[in-house]
Design a protein around this nucleic acid. Sequence first.
DNA 1: GCAAAACCGACCGCTTCGGTAGGATTTGGG
DNA 2: CCCAAATCCTACCGAAGCGGTCGGTTTTGC
Lengths: 156, 156
Amino acid sequence: MLFSTKAEYGVRLMVELGRQPSSQPISLSTVAEAERLPLSYLEHLVAKLRKAGLVTSTRGAHGGYRLAMPAAEIRMDAVVQALEGQIAPMECFHDTPEGKVLCSHEDDGDRACSTKLLWMRVQGGVTKALAGTTLAELVEFSQPQGQSEADVVKAA
Amino acid sequence: MLFSTKAEYGVRLMVELGRQPSSQPISLSTVAEAERLPLSYLEHLVAKLRKAGLVTSTRGAHGGYRLAMPAAEIRMDAVVQALEGQIAPMECFHDTPEGKVLCSHEDDGDRACSTKLLWMRVQGGVTKALAGTTLAELVEFSQPQGQSEADVVKAA
DNA sequence: GCAAAACCGACCGCTTCGGTAGGATTTGGG
DNA sequence: CCCAAATCCTACCGAAGCGGTCGGTTTTGC
């Protein structure tokens, strides 16, 4: 599997927050019940989302979480990265100060790294899919009257 | 990380085999030395490739492995799948008899699965990248006189 | 002040990862 | 015919991550 349930649960959590039209926060236990997910596990996940600045929290009674910005402005690559860590196909890919990726096997002798081309393409495909999808799209898609799934997927 | 070193090592192994022009097999220890990888671990990986029909083996002295078909006919999705198992973004994706993928959270109440759209797009991106790359391309790319990396990546 | 909620950190069983070890079997060459 | 080289097979092992659980602390509205 490319991703663990951290991404799965975390994205569901975000969609649940995005579904709420009101400005008042909703509690984690509400989300946990709606999605039938373990509350104490969601706490760990929402902590990552909060540290990444994707959700804000209000403590105390009637507290809870809400999106830190409109759902249309939240790209899913940020969400998945907050939950799963750096998105790279391989251990040997790491970020450079310029924000690019490099393969550390780069200079094995006189040849180029034989796998780099492949992982660059995979990286591109995943990044494109994640960055090209907003939370608002997922909220819209999950509504019962949403357009046919084939249409939306095709638009990727 | 999306993939483990099984894919990394296994792909390097395949490239090494693809580099050999002759028809005679090359031994694992030769590959291990060339790529500086542990021989006993490579044995496990090459076993998966053999079971998947991607390489053939000849036992005994002067034995070894060779590609089961021309490198240009070997698509990397087959290689990675043989090494890592089914390529799916999520646990809840599984193959159907028709060869498609489905999300098992499909019918949670009256709403569509809120994450399905996202994982479908990711799945599409990865599959396109892997299936659109052949072993021959990687062999070509890893030669010192290969064309610039930007050109090849762009062609994805 | 009580209850509801966010917060925090420790723990735990399980599986996978990356690798090692030891052997068995097959085969070509001397 | 025997030995060395090679594939093949099974078991094991430490470390790490996954998917939680638990107990507690702090904050806040009513």
